[in-house]
Design a protein around this nucleic acid. Structure first.
Lengths: 229, 229
DNA sequence: AGATCATTCAATGACTCGATTGAATGATTT
DNA sequence: AAATCATTCAATCGAGTCATTGAATGATCT
């Protein structure tokens, strides 16, 4: 970031941030870190990266101001530095979805085919929750659920869903959610449960968006590695 | 953008967009194109790039869905593809300003020193304009002004400002604006005029933000290369 | 039809980025 | 104090990016 011309330098700084977003693995890491604090190893595993590689990406994201980290015992925990980062990735998604034919096809084709119906808005879910009219289903991993989840949500990770159908009430309407607007888990849950007779829709966005909107969340400090941010 | 895993592909598409934002020259080009349609040569000149280099950047931005282009006679005119792009760059600015110490210093130091006062909000300017209480000063180039400007604005490009002081009423309050939130022209105008006894503040954001907010703008089709988008 | 002109293309060289490997660090635990 | 473990560092290689140069398009104008 060479200086002299202030405007150029500001743009250079902005470009650093944008460059940090410019790699698929890093975008995935950001989505994972948005669920709550995670160790390098945990993130590497979930993103299917080697630990060294994940560490490099994480450091780059931290230098760009997108992630923050702290030490906890012998691990380093990374988290989203700020909810403005969520707004940035959301804006990135909107532009890509609107202006890139390839992305639009992927989302319009794959995603919509799994869930023709509009998602439930956060506002609507809040209202319904107050009257206790819905069952909220969190299909993320147990660690992510433990790090924070929607009030009254039950947790069944997607891969266990087909084995644990009896835990889900068939009489009430179900709202499924996962990691974010472009996380496929909730789509898959809808695709899996609807043909089996469940009344299920998915939530707009995921847990990070819910939390960033200032809506109530539940933390469960269960001695694990994940702590509410 | 290799396929198979839909989620990976979506992230790959997002990364393409982010990569396109990941170069200072391209961010500058985006700011310039946000003022209205411009030819390759015009953009190259304003950004101080060779035509071939600018052309390459422009094509990359178009492939990423950030710019759109059309032919007009023997030139190709580029424009912002969508106002969602403005939201994206605004979000990028907010994150960089908040989380990158270098950028925060630049903006907090250089910019604020030139204008300690808070900018005038768009809402406030709208109200004041209705009562005809302010003079609006556009310090961008004549071409940019011609391509679109705020109602009742007068145009004095920054480099001519010190020679044309008599055109500016000293009795009324002045609101200066330029290309955007991180464009230095309006800051410089404030720094130049305030010591000379003018009551001057700058507008939050610039012309593109005003227009994207749905507020009224004036086009002047004067046969030049710039046409309202 | 040929000349003109804006833009794009293609090729080059310097530089940066990404993933892998194996070693180094540095805090914790025994 | 030594062992352990998560993370980071350093070196490497292949691939990709950026600016420059000069040539090639391809639409307009005479």
């Amino acid at each position: 970031m060479s200086s002299e011309n202030p405007k150029r330098s500001v743009f250079a700084g902005f470009a650093e941030v944008a460059k940090a977003l410019g790699h698929p693995h890093r975008l995935e890491i950001l989505e994972l870190a948005a669920q709550g604090e995670r160790s390098v190893e945990g993130l590497a595993e979930q993103a299917r990266l080697s630990v060294a590689n994940a560490s490099q990406h994480l450091q780059l994201l931290r230098r760009a101001g997108l992630l923050a980290s702290r030490r906890d015992g012998k691990r380093i925990l990374y988290r989203l530095s700020d909810s403005s980062v969520l707004e940035l990735t959301a804006a990135l998604g909107r532009v890509a979805e609107r202006n890139l034919a390839e992305v639009r096809e992927l989302i319009g084709g794959y995603f919509r085919e799994h869930d023709a119906l509009e998602p439930v808005t956060r506002r609507e879910l809040t209202r319904r929750l107050k009257d206790d009219l819905v069952t909220v289903l969190d299909v993320r991993s147990e660690e992510e659920f433990a790090a924070g989840h929607l009030p009254q949500a039950i947790n069944i990770p997607l891969r266990e869903l087909s084995r644990r159908l009896r835990e889900i009430p068939k009489s009430r309407e179900i709202v499924a959610y996962c990691r974010g607007a472009y996380c496929v888990l909730a789509f898959e849950a809808v695709a899996l449960l609807r043909p089996r007779g469940f009344k299920i829709r998915r939530l707009e966005g995921g847990y990070p968006e819910w939390r960033a909107a200032g809506l109530p969340v539940i933390y469960r400090q269960n001695g694990g590695a994940l702590v509410p941010a």
